[in-house]
Write a protein that binds this DNA or RNA. Structure first.
Lengths: 257, 257
DNA sequence: CAGAATACTAAACATACGTTCAGTATCGAG
DNA sequence: CTCGATACTGAACGTATGTTTAGTATTCTG
């Protein structure tokens, strides 16, 4: 119940939208000191509750209790449950953007094919991945915008890698990036099933990256050499793309955006 | 509001669990005759409402109204909202199993890599795909069991295809089948995003399979030749699977089941 | 047909929820 | 210090919701 007593002190303090002026100078003296604003604490509690029960399933009183405040205060700060949800969406999106930027700035690393690699969260802080896994299916504009950004990033990233000879060329730059991104996000959304089937939990940060292996192994195999033999691939293509289609397109298909 | 006035008369009548004895001989004369039992009508209405608003978001009165009955009757037939949800889960799972069996019995067709190809529903009947897209993320035992079956089917199917030389061999029979199945399901769960990004709606049956092309195209490309160049693949593998692993590349290797 | 069981409705019930409100404490500005 | 604004609480309000209940129609069984 009580948040981590101490430990991650001055950690993470870059985004911090408008959660308030001062970190709540231990006003009531009630709980162990927490460097977050009350508003931020409420927001984090909401993220945790929404992640666990879904937005419709969670309720303000539980969120308030988790944050150690009254239900009225939640409304006072966020106007309504919907406002709270919007704030959570924006916060999560902002954190992800920031961490992606940090990761990009840092040593080459491997953004690889996990668009959410940036938010493999430490055990501290709210469960961003689980929150996203929930809200990804509940259609909010903020999350939609975030997904669009992830795909756009993937398009750019894959173009770079392709130019560097690290990725095979594609006839569908936008389509391939979108499909790979959505597949990755889909695996996160279905993390419960993945855990049950392969014993890998994508919604928790791995102590040791090796525990991801039952998932990463097949993924690398699929992305490495494909799964269809040449003739099967040709067969499907003939069936779907129209028999004589012969693949004219190589450019960007600008359906959207 | 009113269901299809007539048309799909003696259609679909194989599963029909225990929705009751006779198709409600137009008891009240209130609504145009429907060949479904009242219980079945309630269940289908529930599937539609759950699909639209999620299980937590939907409410019994709306479901009852959609089915043209009172809220009390829903409880009378299903005991509780949870019971109703369980019945829906079971029904959807049963329909999918049945259609998969039919599809398997029919001409070779292509179960391909869409584990849900069997339920590309006609415009009649409840929105099974959307329902599944919702419940897949809400963790019910019935849905979990269904997913397990889909994966098991995929393992068997891919083994057959591999033997027939239609699929590349894999080191991870279970893992590859699980990953491909979950990716496909994930794309369904994220159908809103896929629609927005590529203009393809996986939750509706396509009048013309060609409309799926912006999705199928990249998918076939990825599954056909992969996306990583050989050295990139080797690099990732070295990083993840431990440096010296060496990749025999054509042999079977049964790590997992 | 009699009588029991089932299908069904409308209303009532209890509770859980989002939100409002009145009041209190705390803070910053002058 | 004074005053206004903000942070915050606890209780109240109104409503929506899952469920119960009492009662009526309908069907099934013998």
């Amino acid at each position: 119940m009580t948040p981590h007593p101490d430990g991650g002190r001055a950690a993470r303090r870059t985004h911090e939208a408008d959660v308030g002026p001062c970190p709540s100078a231990d006003r009531t003296g009630a709980r162990p000191h927490d460097d977050r604003t009350t508003k931020a604490r409420i927001r984090d509690a909401a993220i945790a509750c929404f992640a666990q029960d879904g937005v419709a399933g969670a309720n303000l009183r539980a969120i308030a209790a988790e944050a150690g405040v009254s239900a009225g205060l939640v409304i006072h700060h966020f106007g309504s449950k919907d406002g709270l949800r919007a704030a959570c969406d924006e916060h999560v999106a902002a954190v992800i953007r920031e961490r992606k930027r940090e990761a990009a700035a840092g040593a080459g690393a491997d953004p690889g094919f996990d668009p959410l690699a940036a938010i493999r969260e430490g055990s501290t802080g709210p469960p961003l991945t689980r929150y996203l896994a929930r809200t990804l299916t509940e259609g909010s504009p903020q999350v939609a915008a975030l997904v669009d950004e992830l795909v756009a990033d993937a398009v750019a990233y894959q173009a770079e890698m392709e130019k560097a000879g690290l990725l095979r060329p594609t006839k569908y730059p936008q389509g391939r990036a979108a499909v790979l991104t959505l597949w990755s996000l889909g695996a996160v959304v279905l993390h419960d099933h993945l855990k049950r089937l392969l014993g890998v939990d994508l919604s928790a940060q791995p102590a040791d990256p090796a525990v991801l292996l039952p998932y990463i192994g097949p993924v690398l195999e699929i992305l490495g050499k494909g799964v269809l033999t040449k003739k099967t691939a040709r067969g499907y293509e003939a069936a779907f793309l129209g028999a004589g289609e012969q693949e004219s397109e190589d450019g960007e298909r600008s359906d959207r955006t």
